[in-house]
Design a protein around this nucleic acid. Structure first.
Lengths: 136, 136
DNA sequence: CTGACTGCAAACGTTTTGCACGGTA
DNA sequence: TACCGTGCAAAACGTTTGCAGTCAG
């Protein structure tokens, strides 16, 4: 499918290509946000020799290279996503769904008092609530 | 000190009063945001019989009662804070400082498309950056 | 061909659990 | 007094590490 694309992505970030890594990237691309456990189980179904340690090692390497981001969400295990433009997340309290959303955070950043002397590098916003499916 | 205040707080939330719990509440009040490990070590210095299991059990009980909140922060261990009015956090990447800040999130909430059908219950905002002390 | 990656097993740190005892209401 | 909370030890997790063999570049 998009093997070629994944290989290029890895190359761009100076990460050596292996079947395990391609499988991880493919899952992140497919699911958007995925946990270590889910990565492990889904790949293992097709590729039973995969070890959990390898998943962790690769996740950590990819985070160091800023190739992926870690998402810490209340009430959920950590999720990982391919790094892309800054964005925020909609999170359903009921079903756990996570959806990307692009919003402008410059307004709220302005409400930090100048006197605080705090310089924002990154603003992280999570909208926690109920998704359409769960509401109906 | 504020023992009386802490006892009332616990009573209001239907949490039985014990010396261990009073010590935990006192630390959260004093530090604002504190980790399990820090709670354990600080209390233990004065009160060596305290067990880590007790800290965890109490933290969990207080979270169920919505008496305290859990704070998940990138690159830091989980922190806990007394529940209060909705607020956001300034987080220093360098020294780890966490500071409360009150901002109006209604603006960014409006940028969620109506068609998404997502109903926001709570908006969590973290401003990650460099604090005044670390910048100078 | 060489260094990096993988898988395995063991180690580690954190959090939870079960149980007997002790303290709060 | 009755029940809930505590402390201890063990268990259960999640994550990391060391090492020997293998693979990608």
């Amino acid at each position: 499918m998009h093997l070629q694309k994944y290989m290029e992505l890895l190359k761009e970030h100076n990460i050596k290509i292996t079947p395990q890594r391609l499988a991880i990237v493919a899952l992140m691309d497919q699911y958007g946000h995925i946990s270590v456990r889910d990565i492990y189980e889904k790949i293992r179904a097709k590729f039973p020799s995969l070890s959990l340690a390898t998943v962790y090692k690769n996740i950590n390497a990819m985070m160091e290279n800023r190739f992926i981001n870690e998402l810490k969400i209340v009430g959920q295990e950590n999720k990982y996503e391919l790094a892309k433009e800054r964005h925020s997340h909609l999170i359903c309290q009921k079903c756990g769904m996570i959806e990307d959303i692009e919003i402008d955070t410059s307004g709220i950043e302005k409400s930090i008092p100048k006197e605080s002397g705090f310089e924002v590098v990154e603003t992280s916003v999570q909208f926690v609530g109920i998704c359409q499916k769960c509401a109906s």
